[in-house]
Design a protein around this nucleic acid. Structure first.
Lengths: 337, 337
DNA sequence: CTGTTAGCGCTTTCAT
DNA sequence: ATGAAAGCGCTAACAG
């Protein structure tokens, strides 16, 4: 059985005073005679007294806890975001209650209820890929629990967001490819239904438009395609491609595989840019150019905003579109001739 | 301001019964007339009643919360471990309160107190690299809060552990190098003070002994050395080396760099094995042989043990030494001639 | 079957 | 300056 911790009443009893007095002495606030104050404080220290935040929570209707829902832990992106969030919340004296959704909306709904039940003071969440229900998020808002959504955006739910400017990020990548002379630029799309997939595709198209390159439907591939590598190879073999922009660094790596199988040199014949600046991009050969989304900053920004909203619920609703950074590495080179 | 949630008393009042009755109706236990029971349940549903776990915690002196301390989020190893832990705890209806130590013992101490204050039902922790104080862990045990230490071991603290069998893991790696004909095997050590560093080094030595290879001090390098790559190069240049075992996959990658600078082919002239099976090992070229520590399993095992201990504090103290798996990839090849 | 009472640890009036 | 009392939401022991 868990040992009973010393409570304010224990101190009160041994000192022949009331709990109220002890509470006042410990919290500095009220008036207590200097003598008693010192007595109480020293006994508290001796007994290793630590206030029970649960009792306080019950009283104050706040828990000093932030709930967090992320799809999973293992992508570097989320780890970094988590670090960013943690760095802010821990400094502010908040604890983190973390749930994962595994990209499953039902689990997301369950997690929301868990967090709501736990009476967290606020929630930071990344909605799962497949999403068609929004009542649970509405529930959070109806409950006046501050909510900040990060990374993924949905038209359906009106709440503060911290997202990455995928449109500009993709645009800058493809714009770069064009500037170094690519004219036949492949794009590998991300999962359906994701705002990020859509926006990166839009950025791609806009960059082509700017450079007056006509969109070639044959060069738009679905990342979820089971024989993606074969599809890529067929594009490469037919010499349809001199540049590629992928939805993620992992999908860019698939391009590497295809190119390697056909012994097409990167960046000699093909320049490639990925997305997210995952660690993989610095390990593969040649090192991969990519778009950094600043996930740590995203976490920091989201957490700070949430804390502000907790302290001032009337704070203006904001949608922060974080700048991305184009990181050029070995996988891009100006086309000769 | 946060909206007041409907409480058991609210239901009691509107239905002209007492809170006890409502409690009984909702919890199934006691005897309540069928009629009232249905009335209460339906009203509870209508009002969206959700029990307040905080009140229950106060009463029962348990929180259904597990505290977790890890060095950081971004290493794949910890992410996987975290996933393993989460998969168990969430299924068992426990929440996770997560703190990071950033490998700083003072932060670790602070985190322990945070978790203890939060009255978590148990703690899973990976102690930080530099550690010379142990009172905080003792405090946890004195407080009768079940504690399981994972990944890193310390003689100083007697509690259940779930660790990876680093000795055997290292042994199997170096044994393999010997079997494919390596006789001059370099080792790059991990951080001082870490049980894992020590044990992997021991495994290395034992494998050499088994194959009657004399230890060559010149081939033992410190991973923390700022000009590690230069040191490695000097070993390679002098032709002292035909195999290498590194404390981590990242350190193994340093060997790749050195070899690449000297255009020494891997695995043609040099076989390399890393440790941990981090994602990097499948991305680099050639793909890196390594020792998989099964971090997910480690998390699962630690969490299960902790839950058992929470339910039965008298459970026998155990030190689980998880098996590792040698993963052979392209970076190893039998030496010709 | 249902109400009363008490209490988990703490804070906050309101008296004294 | 201090004590008494009430209450946060819930459960459990005890009376009816």
């Amino acid at each position: 059985m868990k040992k009973k911790r010393t409570s304010i009443t224990d101190i009160a009893n041994t000192l022949q005073v009331t709990p109220s007095t002890v509470s006042r002495a410990l919290n500095g606030g009220g008036k207590v005679s200097e003598k008693k104050r010192l007595e109480i404080i020293s006994l508290a220290k001796k007994l290793g007294y630590r206030p029970n935040p649960i009792a306080k929570s019950l009283l104050e209707n706040r828990t000093n806890t932030i709930g967090l829902i992320i799809p999973e832990f293992t992508h570097h992106f989320y780890s970094r975001m988590l670090s960013g969030i943690e760095s802010v919340t821990s400094k502010a004296g908040y604890q983190l209650l973390i749930c994962t959704s595994n990209e499953d909306q039902n689990q997301e709904i369950k997690s929301i209820h868990t967090l709501l039940d736990a009476r967290v003071d606020g929630i930071i969440a990344t909605i799962s890929k497949m999403n068609d229900k929004f009542e649970h998020l509405q529930e959070v808002m109806d409950n006046d629990t501050p909510l900040v959504l990060v990374d993924r955006f949905s038209e359906e739910i009106e709440t503060p967001y911290v997202i990455s400017d995928d449109f500009k990020g993709a645009f800058s990548a493809v714009d770069h490819l064009c500037q170094i002379g690519c004219r036949k630029i492949m794009h590998i799309k991300g999962p359906d239904n994701l705002s990020t997939t859509f926006n990166r595709f839009m950025g791609y198209k806009e960059a082509l438009r700017k450079h007056e390159i006509e969109l070639d439907e044959r060069l738009i591939l679905e990342g979820s395609n089971p024989d993606l590598v074969e599809k890529i190879k067929s594009c490469l073999e037919n010499n349809w491609v001199d540049g590629a922009f992928a939805y993620s660094d992992y999908l860019a790596f698939e391009i590497y595989k295809a190119a390697s199988q056909l012994t097409i040199p990167i960046p000699g014949q093909l320049s490639v840019i990925g997305y997210a600046d995952e660690p993989i991009s610095t390990y593969i050969n040649p090192t991969l150019s990519t778009v950094n989304q600043q996930p740590f900053e995203m976490g920091v920004t989201g957490a700070k905003y949430l804390l502000n909203k907790i302290n001032d619920p009337e704070i203006a609703l904001e949608i922060k579109n974080l700048e991305t950074k184009l990181v050029i590495r070995e996988s891009c080179r100006r086309l000769e001739g």
